[in-house]
Every structure is written in C-alpha cells, then in structure tokens.
Design a binder for these strands. Structure first.
Lengths: 334, 334
DNA sequence: GTCTCGTTTTAGAACAATTAATAAATGAAA
DNA sequence: TTTCATTTATTAATTGTTCTAAAACGAGAC
C-alpha cells in the first residue's frame, strides 16, 4: 500500500479547521459555510489529498465494496453477468472484489469467507448450483447476498433468474413442433437445481405432446467437451435416433454442432440444435445457433441493483426476480 | 457491511489474555506458548471470530488486496489473463479488486484512482494501450504497478508481454512461405504501441522477403466487427487481390473467416488466416484457426507473481519480462 | 445590550486491529 | 538462591477516518 502521504489531519491543519469540517467537505455534507468549503477544497486540491477508504471503512462500517463470486471469469455466461454487475456497481460507487470459485463448494466457502473478512457491504453469488454448505454459510452471515443466475432450491435467498423450466419447455416445444420425436437434453450439472428445472420443463413439453419421456436422452456432458467426448456423444445420439437437442451451455452446443458437421450430419436439415446461454459465442458459430435468449447483462445488472437496495435497507417489493426471456431462432433450427 | 459482532477484544477477554496475544495467534507469530495458543484458538473457534480486514489494513498499512484494471471482463483475451492473475493472487493470499475500464483513458484514470483510494498494495493494469495520461497517473502513485499484456512505449513500468514484433514477423513469414504476396494485417488499435510493434514485425517480414510493403494492406477494424463491416472488409480484400491475413484479434479473425466462407472463398485453399490471441475462441471456429500461441494465463500469472515481489520489496532481477510464444498451425493455413 | 435559536464548527471518542516498548515469567547456569 | 538470558505476555500508542455532543457564532427580536 502506498504510504499515505497526506491525511485529513494535514488538510485540517493547513486549512485552519478541524478534521470534522474537512470530513464534511469531502462527503458533501451541506452544513458547511460556502467560504470554508472553498478554503478546504482549495487545500485538498493543493495537497492532492485522497481520502483513505480503509480508514473510512473502519470508522463508518461501510466499505462501499461488494464481493462477487464467480465460477470462472473465463466463462462467457458468467463474465457477461459480471459486466452487468460491475457497471451498476460503479454507477452506485461501489467497488468490486472478484473471486473465482470454480463452482466448487469448498472453494466457494473459502472465498466467501475471505470476502466477508474484507467487510464488504454485500455479496453477489454466481454458481452452477447452490450447495447446502454454501447456503448455510451465506445464511450465517448478516451481509446481504444476492444470487445471480443461480437457483436457490429453497427459494429463500434473494435472486435474479429467468424461468428456466418454462424456457426449456418452450425450447423443447419448438423442436417438437418441428416434428422431432427423439430430442436430447444436454447439460453439465444434471443434478443441480437449475438443471432439474430445465429437466422438468423438458419433460413437461415431451409429455404434453404425447411423446414418451426417455431418461436416457437426458445426457450429462463435461463442461469442456473435448473432441473425443464430442465424437462419442454424437455417435451415441445418432445411434439412438436422436434428431434434435436442447443444450444447456453454448460451448457444449458448439462442440456438438461442429462434431455433427464433421460427421456429415446436416444442421439444421438432419439435426436441429437450440442452446441456452445466448453468450457472444452464438454469433460466431456457423450456422449461427438458435438460442434461448437470456438477458445476461441484465441478470447481473438487476442483481446488483437489488443488492444496492438491500445494502441501504430500502424497502424492496420483490426478492425473487424473474426476468423475461425469448427464443431467438437462428440457423440451427429450420 | 455486517455488524462486526465479535472483535479481537472479545476473544482476548474470553480467553483471559491480551489483544496482542490474540493478534499473535491469528497471525501465526511464533512467540506464543503452545498452551496459550491452543486456549486462544479454541475461543476463536467457539466465538467464530473472523479478523476484520479493514481494521487490520488500517493498522498494518497493508490490505493484501491488489487492483486489477481490465478493459472488459467479457473479452476472452483479457479474462484469460485475469484468471491467471487471480489464481496466483489467491495463492499468495491477495484479494482482487476488479474494475472494467473499456480501455478508455478517462475511465482508466478514474478506476485507478478509486482503486488507489482503497489502499491496494499493488495494481495490475491491462489495456489496449497505455496512454500518456494514464502513464503519468501511474507514475504519480508510489504503489507498485505491473502491466500485463500491455506495452509501455517508454518501457519503464514493469511489464509482462511477448515479443509482439517478432511474433507478427513470424506469422507473416509463415504466410509468405506459403507463397502469398498480398498479405493484409488487421488490427483494432492500429495506433497503439502494441500494434505499432506488430506492424513493424509485419513490415520487416515483408521487406526481408523482397515483397513490397503496402500501407493500404494494414487495415483498422472495429472490435465488434459486425456483419456489414465484415462483408465490406472481405469485398475490399478480394478486390485488392489479398490472399492471406494476419489478424490481431480472434473475434475479428472469426468474423473474417465466417464472411470469407459465406462469400464462397475457400479457407485455407484460397485464403489463409493466422490470428494472434489464442483465446478459447480458436477451438470453436471451423476450420480451426491457426494462431500465434500466446501464453495468456501465464501472462497474468507471471504479472501477479512479479507484483508480489514488488509489493514485498524483494529483489527482482527483471522488470520487463518477455514470455515465449509459438505458432500453432491449425486449419486456416495449409 | 441581552436573549434566542438555528447554523457552523470543534474536540475527541470510537472503529478493530497491529506493533513497539516494556514487563513478567521461565529456566538454566553459577 | 541468585543472576541473567530468553521466552512469553501486556500495555498503550497508532492508523485515518466518521460521528456525536457540545461549543461558538451570528442574526434577529426584544
């Protein structure tokens, strides 16, 4: 840390006023005579005084800092949310402490605790899922926490999401409407609450259309689907007679798409794909992926906005915000 | 901020020792008798005491926090560096304050100042380029700053980079070796120092091969090359008789690739492309982009490691680290 | 000239830790 | 038992702010 050269005390002495007055000027408190305000401001400029946020944090018990827990900054789904979070945060003059968790509960708890030790005013948590341990840890603290793009099974923690069940139902329905009878559902954390909801939506669409729900078509894939896995996956799908897939992650969808094309399967003619994240990736795939259009930036932005309300103890009508989605049909569906 | 329920004073009272002793236990200071250490540790566990990092920061003048300035978390090139930074930071028990700057000098200075106000122990700066204003602002502070993937024209600030000039020379040479005579160089910030270096490398390769350097083949593109721009760009390239391109940004390279294919130009048969960032994007393009293989994660990791040395005032042999690169030939070159 | 009352300003106590300087306890050697 | 060095623990100052209670000020009323 830079040796704090000039303190509020220096400014006070130089301006011939008390620390309290300088503090008031710095914080824009109206109870200062314009003439002294000017006098103090001039000294501040001259000495190039910059308030020490740490001391301020200690004295006021507010750090104007929020913690953001993200599985991986490198994942475009989450980094898109993070961008929304940061923009709103800086609009409200909050700083962001960012920590990668890899989506592992142990690490999530670890970073949550170091973040809380930093006395953040609030936390935004993003994860593939919310494990019970993490849940408990969050509830123990009395720092406000908002979940962004993360489902709380108990639906107690404030959260911003879309209706994953409905969205997957719609996606699946679209494929059904296109005449498919064997539709796969591909996801990473098939056991997470979020994916359970998508599975429900998928199942609902299937059953309401009098197709038979086949558990073996709900397939778990690794997040970094490598070439070998993809090859195997596609062979498996083809063998099973699958002709369409609803995919939970854009990276998986692209791997699938590329491998299908590689094996000579025409998309969308012989196989249709609809993906879910609407990350910037869909714009660079060819053919361009049809996608569930999630408002990624907004999920983050609204989460941060809600957090500002919680931090300032404003009345908040709704703690469980569900943002609208739509489906954008591009080129991997007919 | 959570109301700090239990303080070091509570622990001291409860354990029947002084605050100083508790402090010593918490910080692993050896001058504590094992029996009292145990006694204190037990109380800490029982009361669930968590040291207040803010108070600690004020008293010790060290916040174990570093600021990271990034143009945009959503940009895979920079977020890959950020991941390397965060991993090493957490290894050394540093927290990260992250701020998006959009690569705009005004905003860069703004976030730098709020980060410095937070009394960070160090800063890692990433930018498309380093403007003079930002440079000056950095030099004014006496907080250590390391540039990651960012070129300092004056080469005074500590930095981690690769040899952009040499790398672009090699890329261009590869294309020349494949028999191309009209090779374009596409970049975003043609005027930035980094791009000046790539331009130098490009020019050198061209001239050493007795081809004629043509300034009009050095083309500036917008970072989010949209469809219209791409169409125009490709038409322009074809008209000029260009048959290969060295591209400075993976997103641009993919737009170019997609548009070439769209217009029926075969890649790599009729047009070869080599890109520069080695971001995860190259794995999902088809054909897979040949790329300059930059060690993105390492650029961040090494930058953070260097910063830890500077922060603890260790002797550091080299402040201007140049990491090795190689060229990975994939499918957009023959 | 004094009193009143609202506006400014001040002094100094928190805030929760670290860190000298110092004191007490301990243990080995004389 | 005394002495001295070493280990262990305490006291209290310090960090740079905010914030509360109280004081100073100044204008208007009497």
């Amino acid at each position: 840390m830079a040796k704090q050269t000039v303190t509020i005390y220096d400014v006070a002495r130089e301006a011939g006023v008390s620390m309290a007055t300088v503090s008031r000027v710095v914080n824009g408190n109206p109870n200062v005579k314009p003439s002294t305000r000017k006098k103090v401001s001039d000294v501040i400029d001259r000495l190039n005084y910059r308030p020490n946020a740490v001391a301020r944090g200690l004295a006021s018990k507010k750090t104007t800092t929020v913690g953001v827990i993200i599985p991986d900054v490198t994942n475009l789904y989450f980094s898109s949310l993070a961008r929304g979070i940061d923009d709103i945060a800086s609009m409200y003059n909050y700083n962001i402490i960012l920590a990668n968790s890899d989506g592992e509960p142990t690490k999530e708890i670890k970073v949550l605790n170091t973040i809380l030790a930093q006395q953040v005013d609030g936390v935004i948590f993003m994860g593939h899922q919310l494990s019970d341990e993490v849940r408990k840890e969050i509830e123990l603290s009395d720092t406000p926490v908002v979940l962004a793009g993360t489902v709380d099974e108990a639906n107690e923690l404030p959260s911003i999401n879309i209706d994953y069940r409905g969205a997957t139902k719609d996606s699946t329905q679209l494929l059904i409407d296109h005449g498919h009878e064997k539709i796969a559902l591909l996801g990473i954390d098939i056991d997470s609450k979020k994916q359970k909801m998508t599975k429900e939506g998928y199942k609902e669409a299937i059953e309401e259309s009098d197709l038979t729900y086949d558990e073996s078509l709900v397939i778990r894939t690794s997040p970094d689907l490598n070439l070998l896995d993809a090859k195997e996956l596609v062979s498996h799908l083809i063998e099973q007679g699958v002709t369409a897939a609803s995919v939970e992650d854009d990276r998986i969808a692209i791997s699938l798409l590329n491998e299908l094309l590689e094996q000579g399967v025409k998309v969308p003619e012989d196989f249709e794909i609809i993906t879910s994240n609407n990350s910037p990736l869909i714009n660079i795939s060819r053919p361009k992926l049809t996608t569930l259009n999630q408002p990624l930036y907004d999920l983050g932005a609204v989460a941060m906005r809600l957090l500002t309300k919680l931090m300032s103890k404003e009345e908040t009508d709704e703690l469980h915000i569900v943002l609208p989605y739509k489906i954008t049909e591009n080129e991997t569906t007919k």
